[in-house]
Each structure stands twice: as structure tokens, then as C-alpha cells.
Write a protein that binds this DNA or RNA. Sequence first.
DNA 1: ATGTCTTTGTGAACGCGTGCACAAAGATGG
DNA 2: CCATCTTTGTGCACGCGTTCACAAAGACAT
Lengths: 236, 236
Amino acid sequence: MATGRTHRPATRGRGIPEATVARLPLYLRALTALSERSVPTVSSEELAAAAGVNSAKLRKDFSYLGSYGTRGVGYDVEYLVYQISRELGLTQDWPVVIVGIGNLGAALANYGGFASRGFRVAALLDADAGLAGRLVAGLPVRHIDELEAIVADNQVSIGVIATPAGAAQEVTDRLVAAGVTSILNFAPTVLSVPDGVDVRKVDLSIELQILAFHEQRKAGEERQDPDGDVPAVMPA
Amino acid sequence: MATGRTHRPATRGRGIPEATVARLPLYLRALTALSERSVPTVSSEELAAAAGVNSAKLRKDFSYLGSYGTRGVGYDVEYLVYQISRELGLTQDWPVVIVGIGNLGAALANYGGFASRGFRVAALLDADAGLAGRLVAGLPVRHIDELEAIVADNQVSIGVIATPAGAAQEVTDRLVAAGVTSILNFAPTVLSVPDGVDVRKVDLSIELQILAFHEQRKAGEERQDPDGDVPAVMPA
DNA sequence: ATGTCTTTGTGAACGCGTGCACAAAGATGG
DNA sequence: CCATCTTTGTGCACGCGTTCACAAAGACAT
């Protein structure tokens, strides 16, 4: 049944839920750690604890990939690492361009997690001509005008935007026109892209505001009338 | 009815859905932009477009806050900015410490979105004694041993972790012990914290892997047998 | 005042994700 | 070879979030 292709609950192949996809990297990280410690097998309970999720959820997630476990034993670590890597597309090479080499862009370029998993920084781009040629993380910063050529030459399909908000949409348009179909956006703006292009955004400011909301709630719960609109003045 | 406190569908006050909370900062940003252009009112349709969401969703989100719109007209921009800010807790000051002043930590310290919304960087901390005293974003880096004193003196309740993965859990433990109850984690690790402490994680590596998954799917769809396990070798 | 026209606020239906709880699978020991 | 024990894989129910579609509310003109 391990490699079997029978029956299958109408899922698999194309039907992996988005929520599951978002957790696969988490499992992969935990499994990689186990692999480095030469642990041969792991139960759903143990792995779930390491990944910080519920074991039933983990088993259901894996069931979308196929039946890769052995009842009574657990999952083979190496095998699972391979399967998840393959499913995520990490067995191939993904050239990436980073646009906007300010503090954040430089931090991203230096980030180790990049190269470790099939992602290769093809180029660092910035609009500031003064930066051109400067080495960041061992790579020379190149001028934004080279974007189109670099994307085409390296068959770049993933772009990372670390520019100021004002430049993000224009950079996006150029990336998309050049052939990029996935964008990771660190700029605090809503990007509009044509169908077929994926955008994921990482927004520090939003995360902090969500924390502030819960923090305020906690503070209000301690000693405040149950319906009070939090310690704050009323509107005009 | 604007300030009315009658009836109310069993929600409001404590019952704002998490998904809605996560979108409020998005609305706030769009509203702030409108406010700067001195736009007096905005319809749910317009605002939804600016925030990149569906208008029905936006109206339902706002309905959790109260009835702040005027039928036939729309929402008063200034009033809504105030209401959302208050709901998110941005009308008060939130001291924040950033731990780990490497590339990423420095980028975060320099990030403008911090100060702009009630967040104040109380201190920058790092374990490297060599960094101590060095100015980053106008603030001196201080040694990690000062953590407890700084958190206590400034009543810091939010901590940002930008350390290597190996140090993240220990830093977390110290932050929590010192009184921090909300943590924004940039280190690629699962943090364990006691009940009552909120953790949000931002993980570049995970975001990229999710993009790679979809990218692979797109590439496979173009010209590949519909059930083929992607261009890859089979397991042993 | 009355009617028209715009836009909100929300009831209801639907779909996705989560977690329980258990039957089936297989390892392991006698 | 059989019994027992562990752990997977999943059917099912529940709850949250999204979306549709429309009645109610109010602005505005006549």
C-alpha cells in the first residue's frame, strides 16, 4: 500500500489542503532535526510535539500525501523527509531575486535558511546606483535596470520584495512582466497582480498590531468592568 | 445607535473573531492613506478594494466593532481610523524590546512602521558583548544580561526575537520570566510558552517553501501527466 | 412630506479545517 | 501460528469563516 495507487479518498496529487501545505515545512524542519540525530523512526505523537501541533492533525496531513507510516511503529524519518521535500518542490533548484537591498534586504540575503533548501539567490537588486557593485552576503548588488535580463537569463520564478512601500507595486509589475510568478512581499502594501501569480506577504507591523490587540485584552480582563470598552476615552 | 449599547448580537467587546482581528490592521492602513488625502467618507466597496478584500467580508468585520457606517453614504474615515486604532489598542504606548541585533534585528530596529503606531523600541539586546554600546537606529545595543531589568523598568510586555534558532527558547524563557506576555518570533523554531503568553511567528523559510509548492504545481500543470508525481525519482 | 436611490448590516447557507474516537494494520513475543 | 499491544489512517461531527443576497436605513431631490 505504501506506493499503492488504489482507491485514494478523492484527494492526493492536486488536492492537498492549503492549511496542510502551510504545515509541511514545519514537519520538514522537525524531521530534519531528527535526521541529523540519526533517529530512524518517529511516531505521530512525538513528531507532532516537536512541530507544535496536534497528532491527529499531523496524521491527517500526512494522509493527504499517501500512506507513508507503519502502524505500530511510526514513520521512517529519512523517507518522510524525502517525500515532503519532493511534495514541496525542494528537490529542485529555485532561483530567487531579492529587490531592495536596505537593512531588510541585506538580512534576507544573509539568511541561512535560503540556500539550505533549494533556494538560490540569483541576484540582489536595488534602485540606488550607489550601491551597485557593493558585496552583500558575497553577492554584488546590481542595478534594478538589470532586472529583466537577470530574470530571463536565470529563469527566475520567485521574487522577494524588500523595497519601501512606494516602490513595491512598480517592482512587482516589472517582475511579473519579466516572468516571475511567485512573489514574497515584505513591503507594507497590497499588491495587485494578474491571475496565476501568487503573492505571500510578511508584515511586521500587522503582526505587532495583532499582538497589541491581545495584549490589551489581557490587560483589560484583569481588572476592568466586563463590558467596558477597554481603558480609553469615548468617541465624540 | 452609533454609540448605542442595546441588543447587540451576542458579540462585540470580547467576541471579535481572530480572522477579523488579523484584517483590522489592513483596513487601518488603507484608511490612514485615505485620511492623509483628506477623503471624508468611503464606501465598503472602495475600502475593500483598497485593502484587497471582499466588501461583504469588510462589512461583516466592521459589524463586530459596532454600527459605524451610514447607509447610503459609507463610513466616516476619521471616525473609523479612531475606532479601529482603539480596538487594536494602538491608542496606548507599547514598549518593545528586540533581542538579537544581527542583520534582521537591525532591520527591525530601523523599520519605520514600529514607532508610527504606538510601538516604542525600549531597548535593543544582544548576547555579543562586543556589540554593546554600538548605536543601531539611534539606540545603543545593550547586553542581554540587562534584559530582566529593562523589561521590569519599562513595563515591557512585547518582545521580538531575532536571534539564531538555538538561542530563541532560552531568550523566550527569560522574557516570559521577566514579565513579557507577547512574543513575535523570527527565529525558525517552535517556542514553548506557558498559558497566557501569545506567540506569533514570522518565518521566511516557510513562506518560500509554500511559494515553491505552488510554483511546482504551476509548472507541473503545463505539461505533465495529470497524476504524475512531479518530475522526480521514485523512493527506494 | 414623499419617493427614489444608494449603501449598510446581517440572516442563512455553504465549505473548509479541526479534533475525537475507533477500527484496521502490522509488529512483536510466546 | 496466535495473541497482544502499539500506532496509523480516517469517518464523523462540530465550529469557524466566507459569501450571497436582501431587507432596513437613511440621504437627497422634488
